[in-house]
Lab assay of single mutants.
Amino acid sequence: EEWMVEKALMVRTGLGARQIESYRQGAWIEGVHFKRVSPSGESTLRGTTWYNYPEINKFIR
């Protein structure tokens, strides 16, 4: 699984929702560690946020 939603990321990493938000707003790079995608497939600020687990795992190492 490369891309996953927040709940799956929480299960895989043990991070809480606030921790994920903090990383997203600070250290993680949009387009690398996470992306927002609307149902139409376009990038957007209001779409579902998807997280790239392999890239996040590399960051944590």
Rank of each mutant, 00 (worst) to 15 (best):
Q25D: 11
R12Q: 07
Y51D: 00
R18Q: 14
T49I: 15
V37F: 08
W50P: 00
T48H: 07
H33E: 02
R24P: 00
K7T: 13
G31M: 04
G41T: 09
P39L: 13
S40T: 13
P39G: 12
R61I: 14
R18M: 11
Q19H: 05
M10Q: 07
K58F: 07
G41Y: 07
W28G: 00
A27S: 10
A8Q: 13
E30T: 03
L15T: 00
G14F: 03
W50G: 01
E21D: 07
W28R: 01
K7G: 10
Y23S: 03
N57F: 13
P39R: 07
A8Y: 08
N52I: 02
E6I: 14
I60S: 03
V11D: 13
E6C: 12
Y51N: 00
N52E: 01
L15C: 04
I29D: 04
T13V: 04
G31F: 05
Y23C: 06
R46F: 14
Y23W: 08
R46K: 13
E30Q: 06
G14R: 05
V5F: 07
A8I: 11
Y51M: 01
R61S: 12
T48Q: 12
H33K: 00
V37N: 07
G31V: 04
Y51L: 01
E2Y: 08
G26L: 11
S38M: 11
N52D: 02
E55T: 05
H33M: 03
R24M: 15
T49L: 15
M4L: 11
V32E: 04
S38L: 11
K58T: 07
W28K: 00
E1N: 10
M10S: 07
S38E: 12
E21R: 12
I56A: 01
M4W: 03
Y51C: 01
V37T: 10
N52Y: 06
N52Q: 02
L15W: 07
V32W: 05
R24G: 03
I60F: 11
V5E: 15
I29Q: 08
I56D: 00
N52K: 02
Q25R: 12
N57D: 15
T44I: 09
S22Y: 15
L15G: 01
E21A: 13
F59P: 01
Q19W: 04
G31C: 06
G16A: 12
V32A: 03
G47E: 14
E30N: 05
E42K: 06
G41E: 11
Q25L: 13
K58V: 06
L9S: 01
A17T: 08
L15Q: 00
P54N: 10
R61H: 13
E55D: 03
H33Q: 03
R36L: 15
T48Y: 07
E2A: 07
E42Q: 10
W50H: 06
R36I: 15
A8T: 13
Y53R: 02
R12F: 07
S38C: 10
A27C: 13
S40C: 11
F34C: 02
F34G: 00
A17V: 10
R18A: 15
E6V: 11
R61M: 15
S40G: 12
W50V: 13
K7Y: 12
R36N: 15
K35W: 05
L9H: 01
P54C: 10
A8H: 10
E42M: 08
R61L: 14
Q19K: 05
S38P: 13
G14W: 03
T48N: 07
G16R: 11
R36H: 15
S43P: 12
K58R: 09
Q19P: 02
T49E: 05
E6N: 03
R61W: 09
A17F: 08
S40M: 11
E42R: 05
Y53V: 06
L15V: 02
L45S: 13
E42W: 05
K35V: 11
S43C: 08
A8R: 08
G31D: 05
Y53C: 04
S22P: 01
R18D: 15
V11N: 11
I60N: 03
R18V: 10
G26W: 12
Y51T: 00
V11G: 07
R18H: 14
I60K: 03
Y53L: 13
M10F: 04
K35F: 06
I29C: 05
Y53W: 12
I29L: 07
K7D: 14
E6K: 14
G41Q: 09
S38N: 11
Y23H: 05
R61Y: 09
G26D: 11
Q25G: 08
L9K: 01
F34H: 03
T49Q: 04
T48L: 11
T44F: 09
L15Y: 03
T44H: 12
T44L: 10
A8F: 07
A17N: 06
T49N: 06
E55I: 06
G26M: 10
A27F: 10
I20K: 01
T44Y: 10
E42F: 07
M4N: 02
E42P: 09
T13R: 01
P54T: 15
S40E: 14
T49V: 15
G47V: 13
G26Q: 10
R61K: 14
V32G: 01
R46P: 15
L9P: 00
S38T: 11
Y51V: 00
W3V: 00
Q25W: 06
G14V: 02
G26K: 10
V32C: 04
I29E: 07
M10H: 04
T44W: 09
